[in-house]
Amino acid sequence: MRRQSAKPKWTELAVGSAIDVPGSARYYKTGDWRSSRPVWNSEHCIRCGVCVIFCPEGCVLFQPDGYPNADLDYCKGCGICLHECPTGCIRMVEEED
């Protein structure tokens, strides 16, 4: 499976700039668009899964400890999880750089 570099030279582009590797969007880490990230307070989280369902990226998942968290490779910091959370246990933290 060929994986295109994130910044290909013009000679390295596929014919018609087509994407010939199915599912390759996952190689493009969109998380660096983010200016703030969601942080869960597990003391108030009831593990209802509303944030998991509403995350438009599908990047909020239940972790091995039983609580949800965001995959920061893809989380764009949209805050929908915070908006939908029924207990208010999510807050947004500014990214430093």
């Binding site: 290909p8 013009w10 582009l13 018609g16 700039s17």
Partner: peptide, 16 residues
């Protein structure tokens, strides 16, 4: 399968 006509972000558009 191929995707034809995907978005060309600023990192790609110039080269295309």
């Amino acid at each position: 399968p191929v995707s034809m006509g995907p978005v060309g972000i600023p990192d790609i558009y110039t080269e295309t």
